[in-house]
Amino acid sequence: MNLHAIRAIYRFEMARTMRTLMQSIASPVLSTSLYFIVFGAAIGSRMGEIDGTSYGAFIIPGLIMLSLLGESISNASFGIYMPKWTGTIYELLSAPVSWFEVVIGYVGAAASKSVILGLLILATARFFVDYEIAHPVWMFGFLLLTSVTFSLFGFIIGLWANDFQKLQVIPLLVITPLTFLGGAFYSISMLPPLWQKITLFNPVVYLISGFRWSFTGRADVHIAISTAMTLGFLLVCLAMVWWIFRSGWRLRN
């Protein structure tokens, strides 16, 4: 294992975050605060409790996931796309590193940023609403698992993209709608029965439901199913990255 390489990539990526602190951390925290003000304080005060939880507290897991998914994908895809775009990827491709070491470096850094971001949003939420975390270890575990999985997904997007527009297409046109429709602002039990069934095809439902369970102890789908679905997606992403590096697709051809 080339540990020096993993550390070099990780440090490089974290240094990039520090250079773009406003964009990477401050901007998502600010936009989430605005959600809390609008949905938590202004509209939430006129809404009843959902499953025994105030609306403001209910939306916290969904809002964290909303930022987490977007930022994980954005950070990881940008991290690997930029060397491709500037040409500096030549060094990575000519270095004695395995695909897995590259993944640990880039995805590890992107996931670290996402975890920090998630915890910052959680801390920010305290200023607007009262909430409790029923299962803190599970909460952190889910935060970490989601960050890693979606950073890995973003890494694939960065490898696939060959222009800046493609970097934005999937986060904007796929992930954001799926997150909004995945129960970030409502419980899927509030939907008509047919839509409850259709919603179960949305993978983000399992993420938000699992994460919400760690806060409230109640979930739309069982925590085991949520965990299994997320782990399954993680493995699919890993297999895809392995194939990309093995075949050299869009990297060495």
Binding site: A8, F12, A15, T86, G87, T88, Y90
Partner: peptide, 27 residues
């Protein structure tokens, strides 16, 4: 390898980019 094009990380310092290269090659 010194490639033909000037592919550099514009925002990095000279010393930081050298440290990165050395680490990447496992040293």
């Amino acid at each position: 390898l010194v490639p033909q094009e000037l592919h550099t990380d514009a925002f990095e310092s000279v010393l930081a980019t050298l440290r990165f290269s050395r680490g990447l090659f496992g040293k």
